[in-house]
């Protein structure tokens, strides 16, 4: 598989190579990189400030103007440029998405590793806790959190991470359960390796591919959730995210009059998340060859 080299970085680079081997995966990768570029160069790419009010030649506020050359995606009720807002929206989506995915993997993988390797009462305890988290309704919990603690990006990330690790932990644990029975674990033990060494040196590299697939799915799910939070009006009001754009149009009750205000941010979410799914699926098919076309 990806064993030409051992380091975590090389495994990652190899997986990128593998993903780009499939057409959909390559397409996803290209779109994702473009989105990253848009997020990084938003100030250069966006013709206007996202919260800037635009006036026409006569000095009148450009309220709900349909797409034009000046404003390729039209303007909002407050005369703001939708195109610029969508460009700037890539930033919160990716920042929140990537940090959440990172946090989820960090917690989920470690809990899965420890639970699966040590077994016994540790496993029992951790899995019962995971089961309890399985019963927490995701979005409602985040809304309650945000309404109590204030609506910053950090809280959004935090709230998502403490719920989302649960499925990753389960997936990783079941992998570890089979890995720890493999003879190489015994071989490491009689080399004098401690429990932690066995977990992180012997077992962890073998679950890395599954963890990477989970990164992709956690990322996709985090972006959608962040948009949902924005749509319900619980995002940081100072940050123009894609969900918030849709929220503003929905709350102003103009969304059904000005399609250009609603369609582009939603489409942006769809394109980015689709790209992430394609990357994840392509990689999953590579590490599980039975999924490939027969």
């Amino acid at each position: 598989m990806f064993t030409n080299d051992g380091g975590m970085v090389t495994v990652f680079l190899n997986s990128l190579k593998m993903v780009s081997g499939s057409k959909l995966g390559l397409a996803g990768l290209v779109v994702f990189i473009v989105c990253l570029g848009v997020a990084v160069f938003a100030p250069v790419l966006a013709p206007y400030q996202p919260l800037e009010k635009n006036y026409d030649a006569a000095g009148k506020l450009m309220k709900l103007h349909p797409p034009s050359v000046q404003h390729p995606l039209g303007t909002t009720l407050l005369g703001r440029d939708v195109f610029s807002q969508v460009i700037w929206g890539a930033r919160p989506a990716l920042i929140i998405g990537l940090s959440t995915a990172a946090g989820v993997i960090l917690i989920g993988v470690n809990i899965g590793l420890i639970s699966g390797y040590y077994g016994g009462w540790i496993d029992n305890l951790l899995m019962r806790i995971t089961d309890i988290f399985m019963g927490v309704p995701f979005l409602p919990f985040i809304i309650v959190m945000l309404s109590l603690t204030g609506r910053s990006m950090v809280t959004v990330i935090f709230a998502m991470v403490i719920i989302m690790w649960r499925s990753t932990a389960r997936v990783i644990r079941s992998q570890v359960l089979t890995l720890r029975e493999r003879p190489f674990v015994d071989a490491a033990r009689i080399s004098g390796a401690s429990g932690l060494k066995i977990i992180y040196v012997e077992i962890a590299p073998n679950i890395l591919p599954i963890a990477l697939v989970n990164v992709a799915f956690a990322l996709a799910w985090a972006i959608i959730t962040e948009a949902s939070i924005g749509f319900l009006g619980f995002s940081d009001p100072d940050v123009m995210s894609w969900g918030t754009i849709i929220y503003r149009s929905f709350a102003s009750q103009m969304s059904y009059k000005a399609w250009w205000w609603v369609v582009p941010p939603g489409a942006a979410i769809m394109v980015l998340v689709t790209a992430v799914y394609f990357i994840g699926r392509a990689y999953e098919e590579m590490i599980n060859p039975r999924l490939q076309k027969i």
Binding site: L24, A220, I224, A227, S228, F231, G243, I246, F250, S255, Y256, W259, V262, V263, P265, G266, A267, I269, M270, V271, L272, V273, T274, V276, Y277, F278, R281
Partner: peptide, 26 residues
């Protein structure tokens, strides 16, 4: 079908709902 389903699944459901209201109701 795989591409369509993935794309559809990737769109936020509230947005799809809004588009449907826009088309079928409005």
């Amino acid at each position: 079908s795989v591409i369509l389903a993935t794309a559809f699944q990737s769109a936020p459901v509230f947005w799809i709902g809004m588009l449907c209201i826009f088309i079928f109701s409005v």
